[in-house]
Every structure is written in C-alpha cells, then in structure tokens.
C-alpha cells in the first residue's frame, strides 16, 4: 500500500509516477545525453526519467529552471522560494510545496514563515514585504492570472526593485510550469523505510 500525501508539509515525500518512466537501459543516446547519464552517474530520479519521454523539452527546461531559481543578482534565493511556494499552494502541488518550503526554511535558517503559510494559508501573519511577495505570486498563479496594478503597487511600496519584481514573476510563473508536471504526472507518497 502506498500512502498518498494530501496535506502540505515540509517533509519531502517520494514521487510516484502515474505513467511508466523511460527505462534507463532502453534510453536513446539523446535521452542519455539530456539525463546527464555517465558511467559514474547512473542515479536518475523517476521524475526526470518520466520527463525523458519529451527529451527536447527536458534539455531546455533544466538550465532555465536553474537560472530562474539560482542565478546571482536580483531577488534573494529565499524570496524566490516564496514565489515558488505560493504557486505550488495555488495548484496544490504537495511535492513542489514541500521541496520549496524546506529550501526556504534552510536558506532562512527558520521555519517561521513556512509554518505560518502552511498553518494559516492566505491569513498567514507575514512581514509587509513577504506579504506583498506572497500575495502577488498567489494571484499571478491563478488561472486566469488575477494579479493587478494594486498588487504591483504593493510590491514597489514594500521596496522591491524592478529586477526583484521580475525575478518574482519568473519564479511564480516557473512553478505554474513545474506544478503542471509534478502534480499532474505523479503522486506524492509518504517515504517508506529503505530496505
């Protein structure tokens, strides 16, 4: 029996695909290249093996993802994680929310913000700056997007620069993408003890 996780948590679950991932021993040279498989690196996650079904997308997605979340300059990494987490909460991607809440807590060396968000959702008590960031990212993640001029004005009132605002748009939008892969193509399942 697998136990599917339905509630937001910072404990990162396992991810169980709903389709059959590419089998490493049957992968094409192009898939192996995109998977960065080498004789010394043969560990590839079920998620990446699932995405290897569309190798052209996988190849461009990974560097784009890393640039949006980790490139220097602009918004801090922790605040980009708030953007990612907000979108993941809108789309109820339990797995994505866990990974990025955990990263936020580690970057900030504090679980205060993510505890608040998971406990109180939209009513979480946040600093004015985090409030403006979270609310904008939530509204941008809705379908259709609901962010408006007032939400943009609040970001500027909270002191965000144009570069920081662009990074926030990118991180929330990127998780509109990531959530539609992780939440749609698989289930978050409670980790089982490793044999």
């Amino acid at each position: 029996m697998t136990r599917i996780v339905h509630k937001f948590t910072r404990s990162v679950p396992d991810w169980q695909p709903r389709v059959t991932p590419v089998k490493l021993e049957e992968a094409t040279p192009e898939q192996l290249d995109a998977l960065k498989v080498t004789p010394s690196n043969t560990k590839v996650s079920a998620y990446v093996l699932t995405l290897a079904h569309d190798v052209e997308s996988l190849k461009v997605r990974s560097p784009l993802f890393n640039a949006i979340m980790y490139d220097p300059g602009g918004m801090s990494r922790a605040e980009r994680e708030v953007g990612a987490l907000a979108a993941s909460m809108v789309n109820r991607c339990i797995y994505c929310a866990a990974v990025h809440a955990d990263r936020h807590a580690k970057l900030e060396k504090s679980t205060e913000v993510t505890d608040e968000l998971f406990l109180n959702g939209p009513n979480a008590r946040l600093s004015p700056r985090d409030r403006a960031i979270f609310d904008f990212a939530v509204k941008l993640a809705k379908a259709p997007p609901e962010a408006g001029a007032e939400d943009m004005a609040k970001l500027r009132e909270a002191g965000l620069s144009e570069e920081e605002i662009l990074d926030l748009i990118l991180s929330s939008a990127l998780f509109g993408w990531a959530n539609r892969l992780m939440h749609v193509l698989g289930d978050p399942v409670a980790k089982t003890a490793k044999a």
Binding site: L140, A143, P145, I165, I169, A173
Partner: peptide
Amino acid sequence: AYQIRLIAG
C-alpha cells in the same frame, strides 16, 4: 502556463 504568466507579469 509559465509563458502566459510571464507575459501577464
């Protein structure tokens, strides 16, 4: 989903 929200932002 990403491109639409990037443009909206």
